[in-house]
Amino acid sequence: HALASDPGQLQDFCIADRTSQVFVNGFACKDPKTALVEDFFFSGLHMAGNTSNKQGSAVTAVNVAQIAGLNTLGISLARVDYAPYGQNPPHIHPRATEILTVLEGSLYVGFITSNPENKLFSKVLNKGDVFVFPQGLIHFQFNYGTNKAIAIAALSSKNPGVITIANTVFGSNPSISGDILAKAFQVDKKMVDHIHAQRERED
């Protein structure tokens, strides 16, 4: 019988040294004697994100890129703003589980399990409700109301990453062959070409 886990913290903190030339899985630590209170601080989540875009949503991330003191601590968060009928489209976080709390409005949310079941777990959330999206699974949020919505998402990684499904599949560089996508989605290649052309115009 064997057990394995990530190593525990060996010091109080490891503030990210973004100037270091040392390549590690994350960031090297700067000298703790040079730590400043600003290394553990971020201001801005009181401000709404700009939802004037085609998805009608905005994500304000607070991860190790914004707070250097999050390095090695395995946690981050984000504010998500939704315009009426706006959505945070289907996406995954390859390195984190997400727990979402609705602060204002109502959201229809869900995630889909892996192959072969591909089962959808979905629910309407109201103010104060909390929902969990397991690591690596496709999930989404949709504001079906006529008022704005706001949520806070906590994630189990200092750098959770995000892969938006439609953007990734139809917006890769270089592009995935239209023949491959047409076969994968079981649609006419003209439709795939139309989506590619539309994305190129947006870029």
Rank of each mutant, 00 (worst) to 15 (best):
residue 145 G to F: 01
residue 91 H to F: 06
residue 140 F to W: 05
residue 22 V to Y: 03
residue 97 T to L: 08
residue 116 P to Q: 00
residue 70 L to P: 15
residue 151 A to I: 11
residue 162 V to S: 15
residue 115 N to F: 10
residue 113 T to Q: 06
residue 133 F to D: 05
residue 183 K to R: 03
residue 154 A to I: 12
residue 52 S to I: 03
residue 64 V to P: 08
residue 126 N to Y: 10
residue 188 D to V: 07
residue 112 I to H: 13
residue 137 L to P: 02
residue 153 A to T: 14
residue 140 F to P: 09
residue 154 A to L: 04
residue 93 H to V: 07
residue 20 S to I: 00
residue 165 I to W: 05
residue 50 N to M: 08
residue 185 F to K: 00
residue 96 A to V: 07
residue 168 T to M: 05
residue 136 G to M: 08
residue 97 T to E: 13
residue 76 S to D: 05
residue 3 L to P: 01
residue 72 T to L: 06
residue 44 G to V: 11
residue 164 T to R: 14
residue 23 F to T: 11
residue 166 A to D: 13
residue 22 V to G: 04
residue 113 T to F: 00
residue 200 E to C: 08
residue 146 T to I: 03
residue 72 T to V: 14
residue 115 N to K: 06
residue 80 V to W: 14
residue 180 I to R: 06
residue 145 G to N: 13
residue 40 F to T: 04
residue 131 F to A: 03
residue 113 T to M: 01
residue 197 A to C: 09
residue 17 D to Y: 05
residue 167 N to H: 05
residue 168 T to Q: 05
residue 158 K to V: 08
residue 59 V to P: 13
residue 186 Q to I: 04
residue 146 T to F: 04
residue 72 T to W: 10
residue 15 I to C: 10
residue 29 C to R: 14
residue 60 T to F: 03
residue 109 V to H: 09
residue 201 R to G: 03
residue 6 D to N: 09
residue 59 V to H: 04
residue 137 L to E: 01
residue 42 F to S: 11
residue 33 K to I: 06
residue 88 N to M: 13
residue 35 A to Y: 05
